[in-house]
Amino acid sequence: MDELPVDQVRTLLAVIDGGTFDAAAAALHVTPSAVSQRVKALEQRTGRVLLMRTKPVRATESGEVVLRFARQLARLERDARAELGMAQGLGPVRLPIAVNADSLATWFLPALTRVPQDPPVCFELHREDEGHATELLRDGRVMAAVTSQPEAVAGCTVRKLGLARYLPVASPGFADRHLQGRVDRDLRVAPVVVFDRRDLIQDRFVRMLTADEGAGASEVRHYVPTSEGFCDAAVAGLGWAMVPEAQAEPLVEQGRLVVIAPGRKLDVPLYWQQWKLDSPALSTVASVIAQAAAGALH
């Protein structure tokens, strides 16, 4: 593949960020025709279709590769200008990060408060399931992610953060109504609280408890897509749930929840993946997150 012209790469990024060729033209102070010509020239140079001409415009798989390069190039340019004392007018450093809801609700946000703010750093957090956060890394929408995937995304580094522990809990009233027999059998039919349709933790726990790969939680499912609301739903008695240890233990001590399978738990390994960039701000955040995870995770 020939060298990628920087102006064409930046134009592709502007089209994706703006959603249309007209929006990109306004951002770049050129005509929509010039934007279209640059994108077409880049597609001819790469020999690939890079954009799907939908509304809004979307990148193809090949386009995502170029977009990731474009965002990394923009980050490197910004860091270089800052180191050369040319930071005036650049604004604060912006770091898009993907993180799962349970980490957000427990240890992640307090960690961000420890990041030095000289120069100012703006966090753009994308709430994404830990099993799917790498998708945002692949298409360049985030620079780093908390993920359960140990395999590094192309162009990224990976380090293990620790184990996020989940406890099987329910309200005392729910346990009295639905879990008075064998727990491994009852959990297959008792109502269950699930975060969203990507949340498989409750099903995984039932399979682990029963040693049956075909087992799963009940089809009577309440979907509650916020970490705090999820926990509140269990306290309210809507169903049993796998709740992060940090959220569950205080409620168990207060008697608002009970552990329905004492001694049993589910640990989810978490990893930090980030772009392979010599970015001071990203390196600082990575160090702070690793330190916080060491104290919060198993």
Rank of each mutant, 00 (worst) to 15 (best):
V193M: 01
R256G: 03
M52A: 12
D267T: 08
D22P: 10
L112R: 02
D102F: 15
W107I: 03
R207V: 00
P269R: 06
Q72L: 07
P244N: 04
A170L: 12
R78W: 02
V183E: 06
R94N: 01
R58I: 02
R127N: 10
V258Y: 07
G216V: 07
V30I: 08
L282T: 06
F123P: 00
L277E: 07
M1W: 12
T226V: 04
R71W: 01
A133K: 03
G173R: 13
F108A: 08
R75M: 06
A234E: 00
V189Y: 14
Y166G: 01
A211F: 11
D176G: 14
G229K: 02
G140R: 01
E61D: 12
L13M: 12
I260N: 00
P172M: 09
I289C: 06
R45W: 10
T54R: 06
D176A: 15
R159M: 13
V220W: 13
E3W: 12
Q291K: 15
G19W: 08
L277P: 02
H132L: 15
T210G: 04
V115L: 04
L270C: 06
I260S: 01
V192D: 01
P56E: 11
G63M: 12
G18M: 05
E43A: 09
A246E: 15
V66A: 04
V15D: 01
A248H: 00
H178K: 06
L84I: 05
V153C: 06
A190V: 00
E83D: 11
S148W: 08
A41Q: 04
R68H: 02
Q180S: 15
V252E: 04
K55C: 09
M242G: 08
G216K: 05
V189I: 15
P56M: 11
M1S: 12
L109G: 11
F108C: 07
A164D: 10
G263P: 07
G18L: 10
E213C: 11
K55E: 12
M52Q: 14
D22V: 14
L163K: 14
E3M: 14
Q202H: 10
R94H: 06
G237H: 05
L167E: 05
R45K: 09
E124V: 14
Q37P: 04
D199F: 03
W275D: 15
L266K: 00
A293R: 05
E228K: 15
T106A: 05
G173V: 11
R58A: 05
D79S: 00
L277N: 07
A111M: 03
H126Q: 13
S33M: 15
S103C: 14
D22L: 13
K276W: 09
L257V: 02
L297A: 01
T284Q: 12
R94W: 06
V9S: 13
M242Q: 10
N100Q: 13
E124H: 09
V146N: 09
V193A: 02
L200R: 11
S148Q: 12
A105Y: 00
V189F: 14
G173K: 12
K160E: 15
L73A: 05
R138G: 03
T284N: 10
L51R: 08
R138D: 04
R197I: 06
K40Y: 14
E151P: 08
R10G: 14
D232R: 13
